[in-house]
Amino acid sequence: MATDLIHLCKLAKLSPDEKTLEKISNQFTDIINYIDTLSEADTENVAPLYSPVFHESAVREDIAVRRQTPDQILKNAPDTDGTYFIVPRIVEGK
């Protein structure tokens, strides 16, 4: 499980310290064993239910509405130049 868990951490962009990772790893084994009980349920020919909505999705005209200004959107950004979100350099080169 430990190797699997490190791979999962990479996928989920998480990096818990070693102690936490070990703890989660042990708990994970118990949790997976528990959810494995689901395999006993007879689900042959049962369609999955992904959403419990009781109605057909309401439709509306696809009209663009400006609900926020760029200033409002950028107000919470950790780093911005006033127009863009600033991130570390992604493309190497000149």
Binding site: L8, A12, I24, F28, I32, L38, L49
Partner: peptide, 24 residues
């Protein structure tokens, strides 16, 4: 991490789809 696990390739049907069938 649990969510990432049950949605990952090879486990999706056994966990996520199965859970959704049981949900019905």
């Amino acid at each position: 991490l649990l969510g990432t696990y049950v949605l990952s390739a090879g486990y999706y049907d056994a966990y996520y789809k199965k859970a959704a069938q049981v949900r019905r």
